[in-house]
Computed example of a mutant assay.
Amino acid sequence: MTNNRSINSNLIWITFTIIILACINCCKGVTFEEEVTLSESELHALQEFKQKVIPKLKVDYMKEDIYLVKWLRARKFDVDKAVEFLNRHLSWRDSTNFDKLDDSDFQDFIHDYPYEIVGQDKEGKPILHCYLGDWDFRKAALAGKMDKMILYASKMFNDAWLKVRDLQQSGQNVTRYVIVIDVGKINIRQHINPASMPFYIGVVLSYERNFPKQGSNIWVVNTPRIFEVALTLARSVMDEETKATFKVYGNNREEWTSVLREYIEPDQLTRTFGGTMPSKFGF
């Protein structure tokens, strides 16, 4: 009996790995550790989930196991809850016309609300560099563009996931991205006011509801005390996994630089984050 269970477990691992490798055309030997390690019951849940949702999916990468299993993990492999969760996401994509959006739809944001996806951490995960302190929330709110700014941030998360997928396609063992956020220029007038508060709630909710299990570590640096109000709001809608990976550091550059360098080589970070890489925004 023990030997049979061992054989079954090995077959489950091999079967799921083959499915993933076929989906992303990876080279032999590439594994995805936790993301592709499923028990027998979890594998059955994945198959049931695929049967229920794949006919609804319009984007090819959304049909891949490595993507679909994230929705199941977010709902502890309860298939019905995962289907409901993904259906809400699909409704959001339709209502925002998300799949047809590109940079040309955000020409009024790209320069004034900078982010870039450059470099990789020591495990190969791509790095989303977000210069949040340069984002003028008040300006967007007064222009009636708060919803668009939240959608722009959602595009930022999606761009990071597409980078993960590009790396998978090239055979790299990557299933998530990491985020570094600089808030050194945060001030009361532009960022800590009633008009700006919806952004913090909206962007975290979008991250949790529309991009589950895609991000890994999140580091916020150069954090002034006045930003605690916004951080409290953001944490209030984070799930437990996000809270556990959400690390906030103050203005002690030596402290947070040493932390980042445990995970990321200096030549993979822009200068804003203590690295040596020049930013396309001139930071």
Rank of each mutant, 00 (worst) to 15 (best):
L90E: 02
F49D: 00
K163R: 05
P114M: 06
E116C: 05
I150S: 01
L43F: 12
L205D: 13
L233P: 00
A230F: 04
I66N: 01
T245P: 04
I188C: 04
G282H: 05
P278D: 04
T245Y: 10
E48S: 11
V174Q: 07
I20V: 15
P194Y: 04
P224W: 09
V221S: 06
F246E: 04
K243A: 02
I12M: 06
G202H: 01
N187G: 08
R209Q: 08
K145G: 07
R5F: 10
L86S: 00
N8W: 14
C26R: 06
R75A: 03
R138Q: 12
T17M: 12
F227P: 09
E240I: 13
W71N: 00
H44Q: 10
M277P: 00
K52C: 07
F32T: 03
A74K: 04
E35R: 04
Y115F: 14
F211I: 06
I54L: 09
T270M: 04
S258P: 05
K100G: 12
I226F: 13
G124N: 13
S91E: 12
D103P: 03
C27Q: 15
W161N: 01
E40F: 08
S39H: 04
K247Q: 14
D134S: 12
K243D: 00
T96P: 01
Y113S: 07
M62Q: 15
E34D: 13
I20F: 00
A82M: 02
N173Q: 15
F273W: 10
L231G: 15
Y131M: 02
L90Y: 01
D99Y: 03
L151A: 06
E208D: 03
K155G: 07
V221N: 07
L68Y: 08
Q120H: 11
D102Y: 04
N222Y: 05
L46T: 00
L205A: 08
D134V: 07
E33G: 09
M62F: 12
H129W: 07
L57C: 01
L151N: 02
N3K: 14
F281R: 10
Y67C: 14
K76D: 11
I14N: 11
D136G: 05
Y152L: 04
Y200S: 05
N97F: 01
I14K: 13
H129N: 12
V229C: 11
Y177R: 10
V180N: 14
E40K: 07
A22S: 15
H191T: 12
R189I: 13
G202S: 03
K50H: 05
Y67H: 10
T242F: 07
F227C: 10
Y115T: 09
D80T: 14
L46M: 10
S206P: 06
G144S: 00
H129V: 02
F273S: 08
T272N: 03
I54M: 06
W161A: 02
K58Y: 05
V83P: 01
R5L: 15
